[in-house]
Design a protein around this nucleic acid. Sequence first.
DNA 1: TTTACATATCGCAAATTATAGATATATTTG
DNA 2: CAAATATATCTATAATTTGCGATATGTAAA
Lengths: 100, 100
Amino acid sequence: MDLRTATEIGKCLSNQTRMQIMEWLKEPAKNFPPHETLKHFNDGVCVTYIQEKAGLSQSTISTYLTNMEKCGLLISTRHGKWSYLKRNEEVIKRFTDFIS
Amino acid sequence: MDLRTATEIGKCLSNQTRMQIMEWLKEPAKNFPPHETLKHFNDGVCVTYIQEKAGLSQSTISTYLTNMEKCGLLISTRHGKWSYLKRNEEVIKRFTDFIS
DNA sequence: TTTACATATCGCAAATTATAGATATATTTG
DNA sequence: CAAATATATCTATAATTTGCGATATGTAAA
């Protein structure tokens, strides 16, 4: 991982809501209600659930999640009209290795 | 580590210069000239050397380093008129464990 | 093919952060 | 004690980020 990428990830982790989302996504089943259409959390959690739990506006959370995906922290998968977000453990590992 | 502390550390790592300082401090002898009075890097690197290498003003770097110490990322030790900064590996470990 | 729903993007005002110069404080040295 | 040096703090302005409402886009259902 290079300095620029690591700093972009640092920016995502410089806000309490975003840091909290990273924590919540460690245990989707514990932190979110079950998905009604998809019966699993294999691809993570849908944007709406994250937004409701965070308590910020839809546009704000959408922007957060988009940026977190752009820097590699999250992986986004679309199923129908829903987007699901999960942690990208490989990138997280590269980041923690970089700063350690 | 709690969410608030982790986010404070995230803020320190959200700026390229500060991230770079963390990297430089991994290998003081490789990245900085030897100290003329102190003959070692046991307590890290003096503020002046970090400031010169970063190329920002003395006040800016001093503020950076103070904040990095406050959130636990760095340990500051004074020897005479110089302050030396080194990485706080224990806190860094707690941070990487938190986000992993 | 409308309509409804889920998510993304745009544009803006408010809050926060970045950064520097001036100044203060601490420490050593003459 | 006075001067010199290293670092810290204060104040101010520029730049960035936050977070929202409005609007656009994508997708499925009626």
